[in-house]
Amino acid sequence: MGMLEGEQGFSSLVKNLLSSLLTLGAVDRSKALTIVELSKRTGMEARCIDSTITLLIRSGYVASIDSENGARFYLTPNGILAASSLYS
């Protein structure tokens, strides 16, 4: 968990990505998004998404599935709660 934080809790990259996965609706396998799709829809650089998402997977907030277009990512139930807690 410690790897996710900045000076005030989650780093801004982690917050942005968690929040984006929630609001874009990537909350189960059927709605999972690739890094390219996430980059297009959030404006974040694919490289930043790639490194941040690895941390989120290790923390249990994001899961991935394989697809023809490469790995797709979605929030786990704990990830949904963590993303929601940013606004509560």
Binding site: M1, G2, E5, E7, Q8, N78, L81, S85
Partner: peptide, 27 residues
């Protein structure tokens, strides 16, 4: 519990020498 400050709290616990006295369960 869990939330955006968890990492910072874990670091604070460590800095205060509380690692053996504090357990974070998460959700």
């Amino acid at each position: 519990g869990d939330g955006y400050m968890r990492g910072e709290l874990e670091r604070q616990a460590s800095d205060l020498g509380l690692s053996e006295h504090v357990v974070f369960t998460g959700f």
